[in-house]
Design a protein around this nucleic acid. Structure first.
Length: 862
RNA sequence: GCCGGGGUGGCGGAACUGGUAGACGCGCUGGAUUCAAAAUCCAGUUCUGGUAACAGAGUGGGGGUUCGAUUCCCCCCCCCGGCACCA
């Protein structure tokens, strides 16, 4: 055995063996329990970042743990290859998006290989390959035929200078990021998939996901936002139009004093034809941002249309306003406003001097309410509501709903905040939407035998215009229905489409249909791992698509993933200098030297190159723009993959953000070297003898007790708790004890051998290269995989003594060592004879004794 | 603005079901080794007072429940993620 730990030699050798022996390639084996461990597939940006390393290190620990426990573990990898960055890179570097993407994949695959993940690479694919996306086109065509796909106009960000649609992130302070033009809201026809048809199931099924984080389930519940209420019609005065609204508070209906409609509402448009002021306001609304955050943070503005609607119950006339906080895409594009009992309606009414009427009073008569100042939004008792006076809100809800229904003015309805999934993108680098527009027949799906509609890859992509939109030849086709000249759809799919079913395709490489029977063996995913930023959108589409595939008979479970782990971001310190113009230049932490003052607080930072000071910024998510990223490849080259893996797992629990630390890396490196040296010295100490567990010294018993406590803790931390940081801490703690155990008798060496063999395997999911090497050095004939995960010897864990904490009035005053199972009387008399405890009891009366056996004794005195 | 998460020593974090706050690691201090340095090893390290034993304070701030609260409840502050075209 080499005396020095040298990962540069052992890691590539072991990786080469894994590759040659296809160690991690798996096939369906009905006789073996399967475990499908999936990490979210990366976007091939060109360089692996620490966030990827963290994600895949977590997945690898879980995969390897279950492999060691005898399961048939599938851990695949692929590439989320369509998307906006490839187009941006193409413009910048004058390289076709496809070439840029494939080159990046090559680089990133090498980086992943050097980290030693137990991945079945034979299943790899990129989502931009026609062999992949053709099945998603087929799915879309079938959904269209089932009526689950429809076309409607929806708002996009329009850049009037570049004449292109911008993504939300391409809009900076209301302007196009390249052109600087003020961005407009514009409506264009787009394709939608009816996810709302599955809203109830997506909501209710969350209760069947006990192993998903509560945070994710709560966010999804709120996102779907199911509410029950009443849809009401307000007849316009002297017109045929009826404005429909939805309300969850029909009990407040008599308090409705005005209505608000969206700028895009047909009634608003019509009214604007004879009202210049209104037309100008509608134009102004178009110029505002379109995201929910923009709308809800913007100042609430409105204007009267001059129209009045008839209140469905009172028959009174209420004014109709256009307001910037009502959106056409939501519900009916109109709301009834009850300023006495709704926060936003109240603010708006006070601002524009609209009448406020109280119709609910608190059930508690002592509670003072002045709705002119502050709306009362809770349920209560009805007042000023005619026949409904005196009813509770709950009773009035039913009565009002019934009465409106009776008059034909409304109906009970379930409403969702969730909107249908708009899948159209006006971009080139995406999966072509397989539709044909025929003048005679309207939209017609591409027949299945003509799929896939292939995206041309060898294109010049110099500007903002999509090459398939710019090329009249690509568009030209014939209508499958009438045979006449027709045009292809030139929009492409939202990339969430590809990432919604890749997990299933991994199960069936090369299948000549979307999926085949192999999917039944592997699905559902047993463990899914990815960033918390995907808690709503991706994970909702992923669950939705699984249900679509289930209803198409392709999969036979209701949910795609049984257990979910969301990891936090990777953050690092930032440093910058600001010039006179306020422009910040960001410096990499590697270029900066820190000076520490009193209590090791950072007092100043300076640039290594010129010695001049730099400002210390916030600790932020690693990014190119803040120049605070760390290249994992540099770290692997310097310390080896095992050290990088160990540090990223040790520095924080997986669901919290991870702060990068160079010295922390060195600590991880030091630990692995201590493990190596420990095995080396153990092997030098002589031949281990047989361990007879009934015939051990107390020291030998103690080290075995600590070992088996450690095995139990590490197993639980990895399998149930996912706290890899505490698992590693427990191994470190045990190593500290093991190094002090210097019993070189034959039995002592036997106990030490048992410990080293266990430590090697406990570390195997985390530092697989080191563990495999040490396993061999320890003279094992079988490979580590066959030996499996260490087994806990419960009898070794039995304690002779436990520590009982003694408190007086809740304050720690002493500790007692006693045999487990001691009674309260025994504990109390021992405690009273303790010097420090009795000092605090002196002159006091014992009022109460609280005894938690083998843990704590609290003496309450006065 | 709305939804979700977080805040504990100089730093990353631990305390799993209401029961010893600070495990483990980093950093720092002192010592051993060395011609010297690196590396390694040993000891110490929440704060205040005390040689020490020990005492007091302490988990973002304020209040509450409890024999006992980092943990449960109420109010507030700050940071992070998401908000439907970044992935």
């Amino acid at each position: 055995m080499e005396s020095l730990y040298n990962p540069k030699i052992i890691e590539p050798a072991i990786q080469a063996r894994w590759q040659a022996e296809k160690t991690y390639q798996v096939t369906e084996n009905p006789d073996q329990e399967k475990f499908y461990c999936l990490s979210m597939l990366p976007y091939p940006s060109g360089a692996l970042h620490i966030g990827h390393v963290r994600n895949y290190a977590i997945g690898d620990v879980i995969s390897r743990f279950h492999r060691l426990n005898g399961k048939n573990v599938l851990q695949p990898m692929g590439w989320d290859a369509f998307g906006l960055p490839a187009e941006n890179a193409a413009i910048k570097n004058k390289v076709p998006p496809a070439k840029w993407t494939y080159d990046n994949i090559e680089q990133m695959r090498l980086q992943l290989l050097s980290l030693g993940f137990a991945i079945d690479w034979s299943r790899e694919f990129a989502t931009c390959q026609p062999d992949y996306y053709r099945w998603e086109q087929q799915m879309f065509v079938r959904l269209f035929e089932q009526g689950l796909v429809y076309n409607k106009s929806a708002v996009v960000n329009w850049d009037p200078i570049d004449e292109t649609v911008l993504a939300n992130e391409q809009v900076v302070d209301g302007r196009g990021w390249r052109s600087g033009a003020l961005v407009e809201r514009r409506e264009i026809p787009q394709w939608f998939v009816k996810i709302t048809d599955y809203a109830d199931e997506l909501l209710d099924e969350l209760d069947n996901l006990p192993q998903w984080p509560d945070a994710v389930k709560i966010m999804q519940r709120n996102w779907i936002g199911r509410s029950t209420g009443v849809e009401l019609g307000f007849q316009l005065q002297d017109k045929d139009d009826v404005i429909k609204v939805f309300t969850t508070r029909p009990d407040t209906l008599l308090g409705a004093t005005y209505m608000a409609i969206a700028a895009e509402h047909p009634v608003a448009r019509q009214a604007a034809q004879h009202n210049q002021e209104l037309a100008a306001f509608i134009e102004q609304c178009k110029a505002a941002g379109s995201t929910t955050a923009d709308i809800e943070t913007a100042e609430k503005l409105g204007i009267a249309t001059g129209l009045f609607a008839v209140h469905p119950l009172s028959g009174e006339l209420v004014p109709v306003w256009v307001a910037n906080f009502v959106l056409m895409g939501y519900g009916t594009g109109a709301v009834m406003c009850v300023p006495g009992h709704d926060q936003r309606d109240g603010e708006f009414a006070r601002k524009y001097g609209l009448p406020i009427v109280q119709v609910i009073k608190p059930a508690d008569p002592d509670k003072a309410v002045d709705v002119q100042q502050e709306p009362y939004t809770d349920y209560g008792i009805l007042i000023n509501s005619g026949n409904y006076d005196g009813m509770t809100s709950e009773q009035a809800f039913e009565a009002v709903a019934d009465d409106c229904a009776g008059k034909g003015m409304g109906k009970r309805q379930t409403n969702y905040r969730l909107r249908d999934w708009g899948v159209s993108r006006q971009r080139y680098w995406g999966c072509p939407i397989p539709m044909i527009h025929c003048r005679a027949c309207g939209p017609v799906p591409v027949p299945e035998d003509q799929l896939p509609v292939i995206l041309p890859e060898d294109v010049e992509f110099m500007g903002v215009q999509s090459p398939i939109k710019a090329d009249p030849e690509w568009r030209k086709t014939t209508c499958p229905k009438c045979g006449g000249a027709a045009e292809r759809e030139t929009d492409t799919f939202d990339t969430f489409m590809e990432s919604s079913w890749y997990y299933a395709r991994y199960c069936c490489p090369g299948a000549d249909s979307m999926l085949d029977e192999r999917a039944d063996y592997w699905l559902p995913v047993d463990q899914y791992i990815g960033g918390i930023e995907h808690a709503i959108l991706h994970l909702m589409y992923f669950r939705f698509f699984h249900k679509l595939m289930r209803d198409a008979g392709m999969v036979h479970s209701d949910e795609p993933a049984t257990r979910l782990l969301c990891q936090g971001m990777v953050v690092a310190e930032t440093f910058y200098r600001e010039d006179q113009g306020g422009q910040k230049t960001w410096y990499s932490p590697t270029e900066v030297e820190l000076e520490f003052g009193d209590k090791n607080r950072i007092i100043s930072a300076s640039l290594l190159s010129d010695g001049q000071p730099v400002e210390v910024g916030a600790v932020e998510k690693m990014s190119k723009s803040k120049n605070n990223g760390v290249n994992p490849q540099d770290m692997v080259d310097k310390f080896g993959a095992d050290t990088v893996r160990l540090f990223t797992l040790f520095a924080a629990p997986p669901d919290q953000s991870l702060e990068w630390s160079d010295s922390g890396m060195e600590g991880a490196w030091r630990f692995l070297r201590r493990v190596w040296n420990g095995v080396y010295e153990h092997l030098q100490s002589g031949r281990p003898g047989v361990v007879e567990v009934d015939n051990l010294t107390s020291e030998q018993q103690e080290i075995r007790r600590l070992l088996h406590d450690t095995i139990a803790k590490v197993s639980d931390d990895i399998e149930r708790r996912y706290t890899f940081n505490t698992a590693i801490a427990a191994i470190m703690e045990f190593l500290n004890h093991l190094q002090k155990f210097t019993d070189n008798s034959a039995t002592g060496l036997g106990v030490a051998r048992e410990a080293w063999l266990a430590v090697t395997r406990l570390l195997a999911p985390i530092t697989p290269h080191l563990s495999e090497q040490l396993w061999q050095e320890l003279g094992q004939q079988d490979d580590l995989q066959q030996a499996g995960w260490p087994v806990v010897d419960e009898t070794a864990r039995l304690r002779q003594q436990v520590t009982l904490v003694v408190q007086v009035n809740g304050k720690l005053r002493g500790r007692l060592e006693l045999a487990p199972g001691a009674s309260q009387e025994q504990a109390l008399s021992l405690a009273q004879s303790d010097e420090n405890v009795s000092r605090h009891l002196e002159g006091k009366v014992l009022r109460k004794v609280i005894h938690v056996p083998d843990k704590l004794l609290n003496l309450v005195v006065s």
